[in-house]
Amino acid sequence: MQLKIVVYSKSACPQCDIVKNLLKAKNLAYEEIKIDDEEQRMAFYEKCGPSVRAMPQVFINEQRVGGVAGLQAAFAQLKL
């Protein structure tokens, strides 16, 4: 199964590093989009929905799975 994984992150973000390390450990390719500008990040959160207020945000096949816990749940669901 081909997965398109996009990680929205910011610099100096320990949770972002955890997500990237989890993906690397499973040899999963991903695209990283850094949003370091506060105004751009707030606009991104608005597009994601009212409950989104943190980085990273992971999307698999254009579906938002969330951060570290969401990625781990997606791994379990996809049996990765």
Score class of each variant (00 low, 15 high):
35 I>S: 06
41 R>T: 01
47 K>I: 01
16 C>A: 12
18 I>S: 10
29 A>S: 14
75 F>M: 04
19 V>S: 09
44 F>A: 03
46 E>L: 12
43 A>P: 00
68 V>W: 03
29 A>F: 04
4 K>C: 03
15 Q>F: 14
40 Q>L: 07
31 E>P: 00
26 K>Q: 14
8 Y>S: 10
44 F>S: 04
22 L>S: 03
15 Q>S: 12
19 V>C: 12
59 F>K: 09
78 L>P: 00
17 D>V: 09
64 R>Y: 00
60 I>K: 11
33 I>W: 02
59 F>A: 07
9 S>N: 12
49 G>N: 05
45 Y>T: 06
19 V>I: 06
41 R>H: 00
78 L>M: 14
27 N>D: 14
12 A>C: 02
18 I>E: 14
28 L>M: 14
70 G>K: 09
25 A>D: 14
73 A>R: 15
17 D>G: 07
45 Y>L: 05
71 L>G: 11
16 C>M: 03
64 R>E: 10
14 P>F: 04
21 N>L: 09
79 K>E: 13
27 N>F: 06
14 P>W: 04
80 L>P: 02
51 S>D: 15
8 Y>H: 14
49 G>Q: 10
2 Q>M: 09
48 C>A: 13
76 A>Y: 00
60 I>M: 10
30 Y>Q: 07
26 K>C: 02
78 L>C: 01
12 A>G: 00
14 P>C: 07
21 N>T: 10
32 E>H: 05
23 L>K: 05
25 A>W: 00
56 P>I: 02
7 V>W: 10
59 F>C: 05
61 N>I: 05
9 S>E: 08
28 L>I: 08
22 L>I: 03
20 K>I: 04
72 Q>E: 15
60 I>P: 05
63 Q>I: 06
20 K>E: 05
47 K>Y: 01
2 Q>S: 11
42 M>Y: 00
29 A>T: 11
41 R>I: 00
36 D>M: 04
